[in-house]
Write a protein that binds this DNA or RNA. Structure first.
Length: 105
DNA sequence: GTGTTGACCACAG
DNA sequence: GCTGTGGCCAACA
């Protein structure tokens, strides 16, 4: 049976799906898209619970520093996925972060 | 209602 | 480059 999620999480997942392929975004950007605030923690919290991990594009969300942050399947797996999306990763960090970074519209 | 925790961010040292 | 501290917001005990 479907798990009940809060409207906040719903917005977070929608923002993840709004990211085009081959691009990534940050927790802060998603938080800004939702509430125009710096509550990146709330976004990370929603994705941490992530009841629909493979359904949402949470792997396209990284930290402001360009680090992959965390992932349910592991950072290593997240890097593998991003590399398949034509996103260069090096030493656990996004190489062309500015090039692949995309603002939520 | 209060306190803790969390896939965070920014700044200071 | 790293660590520590303060701050922000949401969910949970």
């Amino acid at each position: 049976m479907p798990k009940e999620i809060t409207p906040f999480e719903k917005l977070v997942y929608a923002a993840c799906q709004k990211i085009p392929r081959g691009r990534i975004s940050t927790y802060a950007e998603i938080a800004r898209y939702i509430k125009n605030s710096k509550s990146a923690r709330a976004v990370g919290n929603a994705l941490n619970r992530n009841p629909y991990a493979p359904k949402v594009l949470c792997h396209r969300v990284v930290r402001s520093d360009g680090t992959v942050g965390g992932f349910v399947h592991g950072e290593k797996k997240k890097i593998e996925i991003l590399k398949k999306e034509n996103v260069a990763i090096k030493n656990g960090r996004v190489v062309d972060f500015d090039k692949v970074f995309c603002v939520i519209q």
